[in-house]
């Protein structure tokens, strides 16, 4: 984490970084370290943790190792509402978030609508139905976005696509604070939830006879994972792969799928993978900054493959 402060599109000597770290917001180098890199590094840690925990929760809920935070269509809904605001000019207001820009307010709204639908469904139907409904909703909103793009003019579409790419370079202290105020309690809730849903790994019926209130578990998991996902989409955008690969790395490293171990360690692996990916995104080809999703895959996939093959050899 410390090393991340030395990396960036602008080269600052390590000694200088240490000299200004923590206090200097005035000089150019100081501002770059304290005003840009520090919140960005913390943002990558919090955002990565949130994504990986959301991914772990969904993987447990859906008993599907391919589930990720976007599997239930939340990202598509967020992008759709952003597109509605940006491309068509229909801004569905969330006054409380108005100061954070239309991306944040649209994303939160989109995620809230999808989550509310899914929560209502998850209380009544099994996890498989939640998955099917979630994926279907994702397609609906994805199609809606396609229509918006088709109707909009090319200039706007270009800007729209750029604005929907996930990146941590937009994380300022203010936004880190806003994101953390929701994400950190949600992460704590996820840790508590991981104890509550521990029998879920056995499958819903085994879990039910072991004493788990399966409906409550479904609702809580969807709620907490949605909040985490929505926050990251709102403040960072869609960052792929962390939510998928973080829990897998934890699972393979720890050799367990029990939620109470998987959830906290996913927070760690997710944060670390994301931070490493963000470091690479801004330091591999300066002054070019690579899209974070491309780099998360570059970092995450080799680790995942190595762990998978190692396990295979042992097994």
């Amino acid at each position: 984490m410390f090393a991340s402060l030395f990396l960036g599109t602008v080269h600052i000597p390590p000694g200088k970084v240490l000299a200004v770290l923590g206090w200097d917001f005035q000089s150019v180098d100081g501002y770059i370290v304290n005003g840009i890199r520090l919140p960005r590094v913390l943002g990558a840690l919090v955002g990565g943790a949130a994504l990986a925990v959301a991914g772990a929760l969904y993987q447990i809920l859906l008993r599907n190792p391919l589930a990720d935070p976007y599997v239930l269509g939340i990202a598509n809904a967020a992008i759709f509402f952003y597109g509605l605001a940006f491309l068509v000019g229909i801004q569905v207001g969330l006054p409380a978030l108005a100061g954070q820009g239309i991306y944040v307010s649209s994303s939160v709204l989109g995620a809230a609508i999808v989550s509310a639908l899914l929560l209502a469904l998850s209380a009544r139907y099994g996890a498989l139905y939640v998955l099917l409904f979630g994926v279907a909703l994702g397609f609906v909103f994805g199609a809606g976005t396609q229509i918006l793009i088709a109707l909009a003019d090319v200039m706007k579409v270009g800007a729209f696509v750029l604005a929907t790419l996930g990146t941590f370079s937009g994380v300022t202290w203010d936004r880190l604070l806003a994101m953390s105020v929701v994400c950190l309690p949600a992460l704590a809730a996820a840790l508590a939830l991981s104890l509550y849903i521990s029998p879920y790994v056995l499958g819903e019926e085994h879990a039910a006879v072991t004493g788990l209130d399966v409906r409550a578990a479904r609702v809580l998991v969807v709620a907490v994972a949605s909040v985490l996902t929505a926050m990251v989409i709102a403040y960072v955008g869609v960052v792929g792969f962390v939510g998928l690969v973080g829990p897998h790395i934890s699972r393979l490293l720890l050799g367990t799928e029990s939620p109470q171990r998987l959830v906290p360690t996913s927070a760690l692996t997710g944060g670390m993978v994301t931070l490493a990916a963000d470091d690479m995104a801004r330091s591999l080809l300066p002054p070019l900054e690579l899209p974070i999703t491309a780099v998360t895959s570059l970092v995450g996939v080799p680790v995942l493959i190595w762990l998978l093959t190692r396990r295979h050899v042992q097994g």
Binding site: R63, S198, P199, V201, L202, G203, E205, H206, A208, V209, T210, G211, L212, D213, V214, R251, L254, G255, T256, E257, S258
Partner: peptide
């Protein structure tokens, strides 16, 4: 559900799919 699980429980015919959990982890549930 929790109180009921202290009174009665069931063994179901389908075996849970677990990749990593040890036997004792399952028992501890």
């Amino acid at each position: 559900p929790r109180s009921r699980a202290r009174v009665l429980t069931a063994l179901l015919p389908d075996v849970p799919t677990l990749h990593f959990m040890r036997a004792i982890d399952v028992v501890l549930l």
